[in-house]
Design a protein around this nucleic acid. Structure first.
Length: 587
RNA sequence: GCGCCCAUAGCACAACUGGAUAGUGCAUCGCCCUUCUAAGGCGAGGGUUUCAGGUUCGAAUCCUGAUGGGCGUACCA
């Protein structure tokens, strides 16, 4: 309907050009909007106001000229000029109900569009280091990323979801060493655990399975482990960083490469499989778990550095290799290979993003915590230096959720082991409520997450309001059957003309908005728009439910009403699916 | 210091990306269950969109400045 009006207006613009009211060269964007106030009709355009300058006449006068040119269409009841020069279109009620048939014939496909034009997109999200369980801070990125991916898929993109696994580097060595030290405790050794080690309970769990698997073959005495290592902080001349690094070296030397590797992979695999399970339980799945180690071992990183060297984008200073990111507007140049010969995380990332494009994706979407925002310019710089288009990368930043409990702000640190895990949140409020809660707001908006509220008053979560609307429809349809009525959508569709109440017309109007909401939300990566839309649609349904009885004796009227609400049921289901929320048949 | 993000009702957030009288939920107050689930509906109150300028037919939205908050500014990951 909206497109139809846009088409009519485009024709009008053409005629205005022929009449030389506006210059031939002008190509105005024709805006058609859904009106907020029904007094303004169903659709409105600001065309007259936009062209007022080019035409050299006041907006209302131009509007009159435009209205005179609008072709007669059966679906349009009347056209009015209002306010400063808006042109309002009033659509026939019967035309509004046409959407019901579309919904019922397209079913799960209703709302799909082709703004993606089949372009392939890689959505990388969560990508939390496998050094511990996911906490509620990761939850937002997970819920947002999964919804964005679903949204893009519905909007006609070919979507792949990927989790980048940082299974290399110092943090992983700290993890492996922490696990090994806990294992030594289990073997009866006593010592002070390093302040910079990982202290969560899950470390013990891994150590225990290590002990089950290897017995005491990995045991070394605390004396030989700590001999010659820089003391921990708190001691004289102590340094927590040097302390843990010293322990890592000792772990590697005392265990030997093979055994160290066994501890290392036991730790990573255990945590990673826990993360996978956790995310799956949250309804978040990935086509690919991309390993940083694999990137290193297959020489992709070295190849990337060589490519940059060949392009003269790398220089040496102070024993380290630097990338000239300032050539591309970054604040300063960045190290890719450190003085000690180790490559930085940034080096991996250059190679990783290059690799993504080499895999043939047209668009790359990275979802990062907003604390990484300073990282965007250097990655884009690298892409440019690698001779790829930096605009192919879209970085979506997600503000961290600030947790409150009992009015207090909660500090979160993986290292200290004191945090609320995503799993705990799910256990407390449930998957649906958590998924919905996270995507209710714009991603770059700060979010206050009051745990007490989430737990104690979970009924306040609007997700129940939407699910309730869906469940109500399901129950009505079931009860209609139980009363011996046979639902026949064909009869219902033929009888839609009987529907004329305010609530019924409103529902039809809402249903018709869904496809364009999806398209718009997808283009700007804003799943919260779907959440808000679903609230509106649920509200329209609840209002209707209270105003009219659906299961009535009059066969045609009953069929018409049931047809209308079953199309609402379908759209609620489609929308909730994008958000990863279930559509229960009863509550 | 410099850079990025944010600021809307008591609270948490929307506002079709520049449109008409700024909306929704919670909270507050009043009404509606012998009728398909009251996890619902109907209604009321609540605003100088942080402040000051600017751009134009028109600004919560764009520009400049100020104020307040978050984050970043590593040869960490």
């Amino acid at each position: 309907m909206k497109q139809k009006i846009a088409q009519i207006l485009a024709d009008v613009v053409q005629q205005l050009k022929e009449q030389r009211v506006i210059p031939e060269s002008l190509n105005p964007r024709v805006n058609v909007e859904n009106t907020r106030d029904k007094a303004h009709g169903d659709f409105a355009t600001n065309l007259a106001m936009m062209l007022t300058k080019a035409a050299g006449m006041p907006p209302r006068a131009l509007a009159e000229k435009i209205v005179a040119l609008v072709a007669d269409e059966a679906v349009i009841e009347k056209v009015e000029i209002a306010g400063p020069g808006f042109i309002n279109f009033f659509v026939n009620d019967s035309a509004k109900f046409a959407v019901v048939k579309t919904v019922l014939s397209q079913q799960g496909d209703f709302g799909q569009c082709n703004v993606g034009q089949g372009r392939s997109v890689l959505v990388e999200f969560v990508s939390a280091n496998p050094t511990g369980p996911l906490h509620v801070g990761h939850g937002r990125g997970a819920a947002y990323g999964a919804s964005v991916a679903n949204l893009l898929a519905v909007a006609g993109f070919k979507v792949s979801r990927e989790y980048y696994v940082n299974d290399a580097g110092r943090q992983m060595d700290i993890l492996a060493t922490s696990v090994w030290l806990r294992y030594l405790s289990l073997c009866g050794e006593t010592f002070v655990f390093p302040s910079n080690g990982y202290k969560g309970d899950y470390i013990y769990a891994i150590s225990e399975s290590l002990k089950t698997q290897f017995g005491e073959t990995l045991k070394r005495t605390a004396l030989e482990v700590f001999a010659g290592v820089t003391p921990d902080e708190g001691c004289e001349e102590g340094d927590k960083e040097k302390h843990i690094d010293g322990l890592i070296v000792k772990a590697k030397n005392l265990l030997g490469a093979t055994h160290y590797e066994e501890v290392f992979s036991a730790a990573v695999n255990s945590i990673l499989s826990d993360i996978k399970e956790d995310l799956a339980g949250f309804g978040v799945t990935f086509e690919e778990w991309f390993s940083e180690r694999a990137l290193m071992e297959t020489g992709v990183i070295d190849a990337a550095i060589e490519k940059l060297q060949a392009a003269d984008k790398i220089y040496e200073k102070g024993g380290a290799l630097w990338f000239r990111s300032t050539d591309y507007g970054d604040e300063k140049d960045r190290v890719v290979v450190r003085e000690n010969g180790l490559k930085t995380y940034f080096a991996s990332d250059i190679a990783y993003h290059f690799n993504k494009l080499e895999r043939g994706f047209d668009l790359l979407i990275d979802i990062w915590g907003s604390d990484h925002h300073g990282y965007v310019p250097r990655v884009k710089a690298a892409m440019q230096a690698m001779d790829t288009n930096p605009d192919a990368l879209e970085v979506l930043l997600v503000q961290f959720a600030i947790l409150y409990k009992g009015g207090e702000k909660l500090a979160m640190s993986t290292r200290s082991g004191q945090f609320v895990t995503l799993r705990e949140l799910r256990d407390e409020v449930g998957r649906d409520a958590a998924r919905f809660f996270y995507v209710q707001r714009k991603s770059e908006q700060h979010m206050d997450f009051d745990l007490d509220l989430a737990v104690s008053k979970s009924n306040e979560n609007p997700v129940y309001y939407i699910q309730y609307a869906h469940a109500r429809i399901c129950r009505v349809l079931v009860q209609s059957e139980e009363k011996g009525y046979v639902f026949d959508a064909e009869v219902g569709l033929a009888s839609l003309g009987l529907l004329e109440s305010e609530q019924e017309v409103h529902i039809a109007t809402e249903l018709a908005k869904y496809p364009e909401i999806v398209a718009r939300a997808a283009l700007v990566y804003e799943p919260h728009q779907i959440a808000y839309y679903l609230k509106d649609l649920a509200h329209a349904l609840h209002a209707y439910y209270n105003a009219s009885q659906f299961i009535v004796e009059d066969d045609a009227l009953r069929q018409a009403r049931l047809t209308l609400i079953s199309s609402v049921q379908q759209v609620l289901k489609n929308g909730l699916a994008i958000l990863g929320v279930s559509a229960p048949e009863k509550m």
